[in-house]
Design a protein around this nucleic acid. Sequence first.
DNA 1: CTGAAAGCGCTTACAG
DNA 2: CTGAAAGCGCTTACAG
Lengths: 345, 345
Amino acid sequence: MHNGHVPEPRETRRRPGRRPTINDVAAAAGVSRGTVSRVLNGGHDVSDAAQEAVERAMRKTGYVVNQHARSLVTQRSQSVAFILSEPQERLFEDPNFNVLLHSCTQALAKQDITLLLTLASSLEDRKRLGRYLTGGHVDGALLVSTHSGNPLIPELLARGLPVVACGKPLGYERQAAYVAADDRDGARQMVSYLLSSGRRRIATITGPLDTSGGVERLAGYREALGGQPELVAHGDYTRASGEAAMLQLLERAPDLDAIFVASDLMAAGAMTALHRAGRRVPVDVAVGGFDDSQIATTTQPLLTTVRQSYPRIGAEMVRLLLSQIDGESPAAVIIPTELVIRESA
Amino acid sequence: MHNGHVPEPRETRRRPGRRPTINDVAAAAGVSRGTVSRVLNGGHDVSDAAQEAVERAMRKTGYVVNQHARSLVTQRSQSVAFILSEPQERLFEDPNFNVLLHSCTQALAKQDITLLLTLASSLEDRKRLGRYLTGGHVDGALLVSTHSGNPLIPELLARGLPVVACGKPLGYERQAAYVAADDRDGARQMVSYLLSSGRRRIATITGPLDTSGGVERLAGYREALGGQPELVAHGDYTRASGEAAMLQLLERAPDLDAIFVASDLMAAGAMTALHRAGRRVPVDVAVGGFDDSQIATTTQPLLTTVRQSYPRIGAEMVRLLLSQIDGESPAAVIIPTELVIRESA
DNA sequence: CTGAAAGCGCTTACAG
DNA sequence: CTGAAAGCGCTTACAG
């Protein structure tokens, strides 16, 4: 069919195996394509009779709009990407992602925008993803857990794709929009609290230092310590790394009486290590976490931690992204953090 | 710009804020759009000189193909959806999803196809997703963890979208392609092994009975028991449900000496319950799992289980999906399962 | 309120 | 090997 170059008369019957188009609907309803398109786009300036005829015709033909054709003219895809630049394992281990993903999905759903979760663990992945994203498939991107040096950020920025990062995107704070918790202040609050409750030898387990969360929480720890000798070990936000770092700290400083851990998940790991080493929490060692994730209420004893509201962070990220898609310039939002005292400190 | 209806002379300079198109590249290279398109699509029938000129022009203009325009003519989007119809929590708890997702991503990457992970926990989500998927955004869908009664399956099938399910899609075994492990035989092997090692009072914790895995593993248990009295409790593949079911079974049958659990994660939960109840594994109670996931090698003692190879399942799913996209009819693949004996039984 | 027409940015036979 | 042209399925001023 259609392989000659003599124009055929416009065909109105539906060919088998072909999706119905707006032409089929128009023919069935006895109106023009323009009118069909108008009812598709809100039904303004359409008479009741026409509206009804078109709706009937759509049902009859089983019409579904072709998004590519629509996107080609509107330059909008009505979808945004949620990009996780992280080894997959973390996605599955860390409940924070879960909460963030959920709140972003919800916020976008209200605008009838689909969220596409894309994983970019390997360099290869990131390349393919770069092509995909800049090809117009999505209207914007939410970047989660981006370590400094992630090549996706400059690429997307250069292409002019609206982007919002979760946490300060190190090296691009000026150019990319972001939403971050007040990490530094949260850490400061926690360590001040530990000091005020009489602890004297306070260690910390940091997050990865190529993320703003890692850097800022460490800075808050130092700030609160105000020049007192510090005791630092590094983790990568996984439970296992928290356990290993705790073991190492106990070796280096058997007299430590408190620990501020830069995430709840690592804090859970640290508590396991403390338990194995025969230290009681909080009697021998006070433990403070960060996140106030679900984990904080399942540890034994319950975890004293710093709350950062991921639902709120997600909602703000979406708001910032949509406003950029509408032409506003990038902005940064800092969400306050709050000390939550439970049993571990 | 371009708001009059008098045709302007074709503009070749790049307007600020506009993405370069194939016309810009053609003009810069001094060739026709057809030639640019040919180098974009593999460079067949293009002279070296033209090829080079076009490549230079693409770099100079920063050209990126508009996927919507391309898809509109090719009727292909070069992406497929990975649909998880499951409360999000499970995604994050169950390592099997992780492995499956990874293997599917890899297999698709080889064909330069992007995988889009979409979550459909609520009914609302499924509606929006249905619209998205049938709008031509993806070339096919991988359905994971679909309980019977999931309305997405008939919808996608009716639209003619190529679909492959993981596990038998109950109610649509005939119409939808799927890849499943030989659940029944795996369960049978495990229970036979428990019997042969002298266990006499063997219970089971099932998966959800609206999934084929749940149904078939229970059937295998019954088959191996061959009419001996059975002892059944139900779980939903979460760790917590395994723990609860085990507690309940101990109450109902304090004399049980073995348990076959329909997933490793639930088996880990069951072992926790046994431990709390003071039963030694495997001395007092033998425990057999299903999956051979990462969990099986982290429990204490190590878990005897049934291996189903998720990497292989993922690869087969992709193969089946791509062949359907190329016009083949749906097929079903059953992957053999294998007993893996460790310490717990 | 409605139709005719231009245009979104590509691909792909076709003719040369 | 290459260009001209048709066509993919929509939306959106414009004129009436």
